[in-house]
Simulated assay, not measured.
Amino acid sequence: MTSSSQPAGSALLVRDRDAEFLGLPSGGAFRLLADSDETGAALSANRLALVAGADGAQPHLHRLSSEFFYVLDGAAEFLLGDRIQVVGKGDVLVIPPGLPHAFGAVQGSGTDLLVGITPGVQRFGYFRMLQRIAEGQDSPESLLPVQDRYDVHFLDSVTWQIARNGRPSAE
């Protein structure tokens, strides 16, 4: 994305052709739409496409921000605390600060999600890290030192492991 911080009182317009595209090896992709420096910290937004059954985010929580998901197409499975909820096309889900959550495309269906976090947190660097991890260029452990910077605090969830794998992990 080439735009810079917007002056107070001006609108931010991100053209589809200008949104940064981050392809994922699974066939999914991020489209980076607006980061907090461009919105005066009001929000950060991206679009995430996942192929059938693909994981989107492992269990985590945000301490500072609410996160919203609008399902543009398909269906996604969400961990919300200790329960699983399927969210389909046209549905909106808002997750408040402090609620453990995770998500992925349901088996047999891809999903296309509009995702936002408010108040905004610089997130584009985080998504670039996720792409490098997915491509094997970096390790998942590289995210641990930046949890506070990106307000993404990772958790373990047996409920999510069972929902996604049919059993808890062997760790």
Rank of each mutant, 00 (worst) to 15 (best):
Leu80Glu: 07
Glu20Val: 15
Ala76Ser: 14
Arg123Val: 03
Ser10Pro: 02
Ser142Asp: 07
Ser65Met: 15
Gly108Tyr: 06
Ala57Asp: 01
Asp156Phe: 04
Ser139Lys: 03
Ser142Glu: 06
Asp156Tyr: 10
Ala34Lys: 08
Ala75Glu: 12
Gly74Trp: 05
Pro145Tyr: 08
Leu155Met: 06
Pro145Leu: 11
Leu13Val: 15
Ala49His: 12
Ser157Trp: 11
Pro59Lys: 13
Gly56Phe: 01
Ala11Asp: 02
Leu143Pro: 00
Trp160Thr: 10
Gly120Glu: 01
Ala8Glu: 04
Thr118Lys: 05
Leu12Cys: 05
Gly9Ser: 10
Ile84Leu: 11
Asp16Cys: 07
Val158His: 10
Gln58Asn: 00
Leu22Trp: 06
Gly74Tyr: 04
Arg47Val: 09
Ser5Cys: 02
Asp151Arg: 12
Asp18Thr: 09
Ile162Lys: 15
Leu113Pro: 04
Asp151Leu: 12
Phe78Cys: 13
Ser4Met: 13
Asp35Val: 06
Pro97Gln: 14
Arg63Ile: 02
Asp55Thr: 09
Gly98Asp: 09
Leu22Ser: 08
Val146Asp: 01
Pro97Glu: 04
Phe68Ile: 14
Pro145Gln: 13
Ser139Leu: 12
Val86Thr: 10
Gly81Val: 08
Pro168Asn: 09
Ala76Lys: 06
Trp160Val: 12
Gly81Pro: 01
Leu114Trp: 01
Arg17His: 09
Pro7Glu: 15
Ala54Cys: 05
Asp156Gly: 15
